[in-house]
Amino acid sequence: MNRSKTSTGLSGLSALVYSTDTGRICPDCSQPVASCTCKSIPVVSTSSDGVVRVSRETKGRAGKGVTLVKGLGLEGDALTTLAKALKAACGSGGTVKDGIVEVQGDHCDKVIAYLQGKGWKVKRAGG
């Protein structure tokens, strides 16, 4: 049996996760966590036509619903700050992924009311 072509064993699966010199190592960029470069990639919102769309989605979340906020037209820290304010207004958790704010749970009405109060033009999307 020729092992030279396919034999990588478990050594191909290992990655450095801790070093006694620098501490924890980022698994993505292999830099110390304190100087990690992959976490500094800016969050960019999807293109905006001036209308913020709020929808509810359960796809790919084991039946758990989330409220999606799309089309904000914000980038980086402004988007993260708005997401934090929306989560606080709803009393729920959430995240920002690919420029889309996700708030855990069905909070479409609260999110729409909050954004309209801040002067955004908001539409309910998808049912």
Rank of each mutant, 00 (worst) to 15 (best):
S4H: 09
S7D: 11
G9Y: 02
L10T: 13
S11F: 08
G12D: 12
G12S: 15
L13F: 12
S14Y: 08
A15W: 05
A15E: 03
L16I: 14
L16H: 05
V17C: 05
Y18C: 08
Y18V: 14
T20F: 07
T20D: 06
T20E: 06
G23D: 09
R24G: 07
R24F: 14
I25T: 14
D28I: 10
D28N: 09
D28H: 04
C29Y: 06
P32F: 07
V33W: 05
A34S: 14
A34T: 15
A34I: 13
S35L: 08
S35T: 15
C36V: 11
T37L: 09
T37N: 08
C38L: 08
K39M: 01
P42T: 05
V43G: 01
V43S: 10
V44P: 01
T46A: 09
T46N: 09
S47E: 14
S47T: 14
S47I: 10
D49I: 09
D49N: 15
D49E: 06
D49S: 13
G50A: 06
G50P: 05
G50W: 01
G50T: 09
V52R: 01
V52A: 04
V54A: 02
S55P: 01
R56A: 14
R56W: 01
E57A: 11
E57V: 15
E57R: 10
T58H: 01
K59I: 14
K59V: 14
K59A: 14
A62F: 13
K64A: 11
T67M: 05
T67D: 04
L68H: 02
L68K: 10
V69K: 00
V69W: 00
K70V: 00
G71R: 04
L74S: 09
L74D: 03
G76Q: 06
G76M: 05
G76F: 06
G76C: 10
G76A: 09
A78Y: 03
L79W: 01
T80W: 00
T81L: 09
A83N: 01
A83S: 14
A83I: 10
K84S: 15
K84V: 08
L86F: 04
L86A: 12
L86G: 02
K87G: 15
K87N: 13
A88N: 12
A89G: 07
A89L: 00
C90R: 02
C90N: 12
G91E: 07
G91S: 06
G91H: 09
G91P: 14
S92Y: 06
G93H: 04
G94W: 03
G94A: 12
T95S: 12
T95G: 04
V96E: 02
V96N: 02
V96M: 04
K97W: 00
I100H: 00
I100F: 00
V101E: 02
V101T: 11
E102Q: 11
E102W: 03
V103I: 15
Q104V: 15
G105I: 05
G105E: 02
H107R: 13
C108H: 04
D109Y: 04
D109T: 15
D109P: 10
K110M: 10
K110L: 14
V111D: 03
A113Y: 01
A113C: 00
A113M: 01
Y114E: 12
Y114G: 02
L115V: 13
Q116T: 15
V122S: 08
V122H: 07
R124K: 15
R124S: 12
G126M: 08
